[in-house]
Design a binder for these strands. Structure first.
Lengths: 209, 209
DNA sequence: GTTTTCATGTAACCCGTTACATGATTCA
DNA sequence: TGAATCATGTAACGGGTTACATGAAAAC
């Protein structure tokens, strides 16, 4: 029941919410959602999936019709297994989303939560965005506090760059928060003006379900 | 002997290279160097320190002169312990720096290596910067490959922002690489022109030692 | 002199990785 | 039919955190 565990739960259930999948595929998508850093190992994924089955959140279905009535799957089950979210699974996902607390604006976690904003009620989105922002602002305060010339030009540079990147992210969040407050959605606020493609201007979906 | 382990080694030895310290203090500085994310627990730090003592990389000295000849430190040793880098410790640090391989441009690791660029030979700096850059460029390629309109406006936004941040970092690295190639140092290349304070323009130190 | 903060230490636990193994599918 | 890839599975290991415990110094 630790933090990281819940994040994985969220990610897996969230992805299966979109469409049923088998583990191998799931893992690839997970790689994108967990973003950048992590490439979940099978040693984690499969046990987790079976745990979820046991909890009734997902069901497994052999993707291959086991046509042969004989000793088709003798021994351990093999062959593709397609996992599908159950009603309880959807409930659990919603619960995870709604109760998202302080961990939601932690470093590796925020992105995952953001990735499922489409299924997140507006007030929760706002809570998470604001939480994330103040988290970053705390960090900025720490950074600045430890200001002044440092050991050498490299540490200076690192410091400067970190500061700037964080400030930029805070501005980004501020923009999102503002439009969330105003309309309950994001409007595509590219810092660099996005030329053309006004097709995506209207299709910002609020929370469905 | 895992990756993370070496990173901690680098960070600890690197910090002690600057000045002797006791564990509690070390941990606070570590928090800054490891940056942002990690706050190393004592449960990790102290055992590690004793390991280093055993390997001869550092020495422990009770900061309090145990003036009382009697049962001053009966039982387990307590009171501040100041850790100091030995000659072997410096060697080990140099070795870690020189042999820095692919892990040096991994996400959580790059910053640590960068933090000790002041004690890193120029050719190694260059290797790390370039490694980091191509790492990020790989990521950009992946990102773009999975381009096109996504599930909803939120995932779009996340994607856009991630892309932009990464591109920015690549540019930053490109600048550093260029000046490293030219002069073997960084020049303070603020993206946003830094007004005033031209004091720091000349003091970029090459690798000393 | 008692509370608070600094400082060190340790054992249990947990989550994820590593490394390995095997079964299915596709393609030459 | 054999090699390469897709796909699932598991046991052992490991590093780090959590939670706990204790001691010394400082603050009140």
């Amino acid at each position: 029941m630790s933090r990281r565990t819940e994040m994985l739960e969220l990610a897996i259930l969230g992805l299966l919410h979109d469409s049923p999948m088998h583990g191998y595929e799931l893992r690839k998508r997970l790689h994108l959602v967990l973003g950048t850093v992590r490439t979940l190992s099978y040693g984690t994924l499969y046990p987790r999936l079976r745990e979820f089955v046991q909890r009734g959140w997902i069901t497994e279905a052999p993707a291959l019709p086991a046509s042969v009535g004989g000793p088709a799957l003798r021994g351990g089950r093999r062959g593709r297994i397609t996992y599908e979210l159950t009603a309880e699974g959807k409930e659990r996902f919603a619960e995870l989303v709604d109760h998202s607390g302080p961990t939601a604006w932690e470093d590796g976690t925020f992105d995952v939560h953001f990735a499922f904003f489409g299924r997140t009620p507006s007030h929760v989105r706002l809570r998470i965005l604001e939480g994330r922002r103040s988290r970053l602002e705390e960090r900025l305060a720490l950074f600045r506090e430890a200001a002044g010339p440092r050991r050498d030009a490299y540490t200076d540079e690192l410091h400067r760059h970190g500061l700037e990147a964080t400030e930029r992210e805070v501005r980004w969040l501020a923009g999102l928060i503002e439009s969330e407050r105003r309309s309950g959605t994001v409007r595509p606020t590219s810092d660099v003006p996005t030329r053309g493609t006004d097709s995506a201007t209207e299709d910002s979906p609020p929370n469905k379900e």
